[in-house]
Design a protein around this nucleic acid. Structure first.
Lengths: 212, 212
DNA sequence: GTCTATATAGTGATAGAC
DNA sequence: GTCTATCACTATATAGAC
């Protein structure tokens, strides 16, 4: 109904198994390259090679470099915001927040590429995100900040600024992915994995901050 | 003694007043552009225009785009690390650390371009910094982490991991410069300036974290 | 669907007049 | 010292054969 005339560019769902495989291979390769080099630093050729395709073949699946980047970002956003979305207003406040911290830290560890691609994007003004920040991010943060404010106003956690609390969780957890090189250099090569200590540190930090 | 044969490229000190003015105009323009677009995203042409010069004229002052970037980074490093360098082992621990936090936050506010250019650099693996991280940054952090460890071991501050304490100060303060767009979007346009609240929040956070 | 070849535009850097 | 003109190279994207 909407193909065979305009060049393919696989609308939403790829048809064949090969198409699906290539499609996701491209997105995975793009995640590698964009997160390591930024949008401008990445080349279509490099992404194509990483995906095991030729450059024109890649551009058969996506109309442009920008389109790959865009689909990548919007596809990732849901995953990225899931831990905050799961913050439960009915839960026990401090454990609930500590769980959020732990999950975010775990995501930094297991999905550093995703963290860096968002960091790159925000750092350069968020131009590729369009109004996603206002339409998807802000409402969610507003909602959860209200939850935190309620916990604070009923004395279940100490007096904190809800928004800055959330900023601090983002910043502290994503730091270990985004500035990984710096962290590892400063810690030296002996203490290979910084995450166990980081988790202990952040648990202590937020426990002391939030206990009434 | 070392000019007039090899093309100029102003060795260390520019001679005439005009040269000095152009030289620093270029560095200032480059700071604007590099911090906003990253190294690859920046173009020599854009930097030249921002400095009020033609592209070839800019390349009369610096041999290459990379040379500008390099001089910028190394020139900025000292300024950037000054607050940590000033952390006084003889001072009163908690006020001393809070002063460090406040100065870093103030730098994020007043020098967001510098913060972003370093963030961009580390985020992409720190390739342009060469071994600066190991030769300049690591020794300083080691020294100051030892100071913090001493304070902790003598019971003057609570039990904290010295290196992760320093990481947390970097991450929390620089977040307001590096992710400025996100912060402002989430907070909405009403509460224009996030810094006063941020300062209060961080003072509380570190006071609660460090009080024995 | 995938390739080779190529059009087209940008970008770092240089040559040479003034 | 500064400019115009231009080179050499890279990179996005397309045309067209298979």
């Amino acid at each position: 109904m909407n193909q065979s005339k305009t060049p393919p560019h696989i609308p939403t769902q790829a048809r064949t198994r090969i198409q699906r495989r290539n499609h996701s291979a491209i997105l995975n390769a793009a995640l590698d390259v964009f997160s390591a080099k930024g949008f401008r630093g990445a080349t279509v050729d490099e992404i194509a090679q990483a995906a095991g395709l030729s450059k024109p073949n890649l551009l058969y699946y996506f109309p442009s470099k920008e389109a790959i980047h865009l689909q990548l970002l919007s596809g990732l956003l849901d995953v990225w915001l899931a831990p905050l979305r799961d913050l439960d207003p009915e839960g026990d406040p401090i454990p609930e927040i500590l769980t959020y911290v732990r999950r975010k830290l775990q995501m930094s560890r297991e999905m550093p590429r995703e963290s860096r691609i968002f960091a790159n994007e925000i750092l350069q003004g968020g131009t590729h995100l369009g109004d996603t920040l206002t339409t998807a991010l802000k409402p969610l943060v507003d909602e959860k900040a209200a939850v935190v404010a309620r916990w604070r106003d009923t004395g279940r956690i100490a007096d904190v600024h809800p928004y800055h609390l959330i900023f601090s969780i983002w910043s502290l957890t994503q730091h270990y992915a985004d500035f990984d090189v710096q962290v590892r250099t400063v810690l030296g090569d002996e203490g290979a994995d910084p995450y166990p200590e980081a988790e202990r540190y952040l648990e202590t930090l937020f426990t002391r901050m939030l206990t009434p």
